[in-house]
Amino acid sequence: MNPVPTGSAPGRGGDGGTTTLVVHVENKAGVLARVAGLFARRGFNIESLAVAPTADGRFSRLTIVVGVDAAPMEQVVKQLDKLVNVVDIEELNPAASVERELMMVTVRADPSIRGQILDLVRIFQATVLNVGYDEMMVSLTGSPGRVDDFEELLRPYGIADVQRTGKVALSKLAKTAPDPLAP
C-alpha cells in the first residue's frame, strides 16, 4: 500500500493533543460512513472533520483532526489505509502546512457596545455578516489558533451561537527549485 508515516511521525501533538490527517478517498456513496464507522469501531476519536471533493471530482479530501491520546496514530493510519476506498493518507506536520478554519458567531451586541465588537472585528480582520437590534453575526477565517483567540475575546460579551467548520489544511510549497543535477 501507500507509504504511511509511522512511529514518531511529525504532526504529533503540535495542536494540543491532536493530529491532522488528510485523507484522499474515492468520491463514492457511503465512503464517509466507512471512515466514520472505522473510527467508532476501533475506538478512535474524531475531533473535527471537513469533507469536500478535490479538483479531480472522482476524489474527495477529508481533513480529520484526531485526538492522539485515544489511539496510537500508527494504528489509525494503517487501519484507515486498509479501507478499499481510501486512496492515500497524509499526516500533516503543523509547521509544514497551512491550516485554516472558518467560524461564524452570533454575539450579544447592544447598540452601546457594538463599537467594542467592531474593534475586535477590525483587529482580527473578521467580517460582519448580519446585524440585529441587540446581536451581531460575524465570521472569521484564519488559523485555528487565531480563531480560538477571537472566540475567547468575544465570549465575555455573550455568544448566542457559534459554528466552526473544523480545519482544512494543505502542505506548504517548496521554497527552492529542485537541483536539476541531483540524481
Binding site: V4, E74, Q75, K78, Q79, D81, K82
Partner: peptide
C-alpha cells in the same frame, strides 16, 4: 501482509 498487524 497486513501492515496494520505490524506493531498492533
Amino acid at each position: 501482509i497486513d501492515s496494520a498487524e505490524l506493531g498492533k
